[in-house]
Structures are given as structure tokens and as C-alpha cells.
Design a protein around this nucleic acid. Sequence first.
DNA 1: GCCATGTAGATGATGTGTCATCTACTGGTG
DNA 2: CACCAGTAGATGACACATCATCTACATGGC
Lengths: 150, 150
Amino acid sequence: MNSPRWLDADEQRAWRAYLRMQGRLTARLNRQLQADSGLSLADYDVLVHLTDREEGRLRPYELQRDLQWEQSRLSHQLTRMQRRGLVRREECADDGRGAYIVITEEGRRAITAAAPGHVETVRGLFFDGLTRDQVTALERLATDVLDRLD
Amino acid sequence: MNSPRWLDADEQRAWRAYLRMQGRLTARLNRQLQADSGLSLADYDVLVHLTDREEGRLRPYELQRDLQWEQSRLSHQLTRMQRRGLVRREECADDGRGAYIVITEEGRRAITAAAPGHVETVRGLFFDGLTRDQVTALERLATDVLDRLD
DNA sequence: GCCATGTAGATGATGTGTCATCTACTGGTG
DNA sequence: CACCAGTAGATGACACATCATCTACATGGC
């Protein structure tokens, strides 16, 4: 195996800065959410997707597709959330293998209570420091990378 | 509490794209590293920092500062790495509380074997899809955000 | 020298993510 | 209808992350 094309100086700096930013940022967001509302980022994402449909319920495979999570990660996550009363599993009449995941009243309360503080934090830690151009450039960059990931 | 300033459409799209990119990207990197060399990204980072000093050893608090990790995360990580023979803990003469973390021969072999494939993957999944301007913009963005995180 | 306070680091409990594997049902083909 | 490949989802084992807490040593003030 011949030696790879290493990263050049610009790329190294960018990569290190990116890794550091993403580590510290998600740690902060997780801590804020956990401390202020007892939810993890994972809980938050699941609940957001459930409340997006006004029925408040989804098949696990739909959630999986939307969140782009591993199947078993989702399954474990739902088990934990069910144990805490945030969601409920219901039978699925159409498909004997399947299930519906339904958000509970408690789940709704939790996400409603958590959202404002979370959004404020995302703003305060991230968007408030960026120009409009940086924001659109970021979206472009992320979608460019995502396109190549499939 | 009055309602927060929500994210506008641009910000929402950027934020979602960013979250999705970072989730999928780190998953891919972790999988590649794990599959090809039996290391996790965490192992990799620790070993890189140890090999950066030619003595191949660091105090845990130095590692912690460099990696910006939680103290107990590092401690657990080092315990696991020690169990697998990648690092060794040594007494610290200067400070009776302290310790040195020393990379082992096996640790050196592991990082040497892992690095080329990892760098190729970072390139292939990330930098190859980006222009030079996007790379410098990313570094700028990440440092801007990091500056506000302290 | 003694004590208070601070710092280095480890540990146990618990929540989270991944992999491998399993069960049960679906839906198409003979 | 019998079979079989595929899909929906759960589970157990294990690695990883976080929080709270603990021990032991360091250091400065008296």
C-alpha cells in the first residue's frame, strides 16, 4: 500500500477546528437540554419528529428513515423512552410485524417545555456568532458532503 | 418566559443539514476505523496526541487539555486502552498524585497501521467534495464558533 | 508543623451507540 | 398452498460518555 495523500496545512487546520467545534458544541447542547428539561438530544430529535405529524405517531422504520439512525439504535432509544413514559408502542393493524410509536401527553409536555431553551441555546452558541453568508455557506457545505455520502 | 427567537428558514435548513452531516460522517469514520484497524475514533485521538510528543508519554491532565475531554471520560478511556495494551500507566516522580500515560509498542503499531486508511477516508468522504474556499470558510466558521464557546 | 483548600486521578452507576443475531410476519413464485 | 427471500422490529453483549463521588497528594497561610 503506497502512502496516502495526507491533508495539507489548510485541511488539517480546518479538520481539527471542525472536530473540536462539533465535540464541544454537542456537549454543550446536550448538557443544557439535560439540565433544563431532562431530555437528551436523542430524545429531543425523536420527539420533534413525532410532533411533526399531527397524528403524533410514526412507524419505527419511518422514524429511522427520517432520523437516519441505525435500526437498533432507534429500537433501544424507543425502549428507554417508553420506560420513561415519553412514547408508547401500539399494535399496527396493517402489518403484523410492525408497530406504531405514539407520543404521550408527557412526551408532548416535555418537548414543549424543552424547545424554547434549546433553540435559544443553539442560537446563542452557534448562529449569533455567524454572518448570513456563513450560514448559507454551511448549508451548502453540509449538503455537498451529504451528497457524496450515499 | 417569553417565546424565543426561533430559527428562520435559512438557519433551520443549515442546522438540520449540519446535524445530519455530522452524524453520518462520524458514523462512517468510526466504522471504517473500527473495521480496518480495531480502533475507535477516541482511541485514535488519544494515540495521535501521544505520538505527537516524541517521548510518547503525557500526563493525563495534559491529554485532557489537548483533547478537551471530560476528566472521567479520559480516565475510563485510558483504562480500556490499557486493558487492550495500547497504553501503559507509569508512576510520576514529580507529583505523587499524578501519572504518566505511555504509548506501548503495540499502540504505535496500531496507530501507524490505522492512520493511512483513516486519512484516506477523511479525504474521500469530506475534502474531496469541497473547494479550497469551502475549506477555509469552514475553518473560519469553526474558530468563530469556538471563540464564543469559552 | 498543621490545617484548609485545591488539584490529579480513579471509580461505580447509569444512559447511549453498535454489532450480531433472533423472531415473526409479508409477499411473490413455483 | 408451500416455500422462500425479504422486511419490521426486538434483544443481549459490549464499548463509550457523563455525573457524582472518592482518595490521595500538593501547597499556601498561620
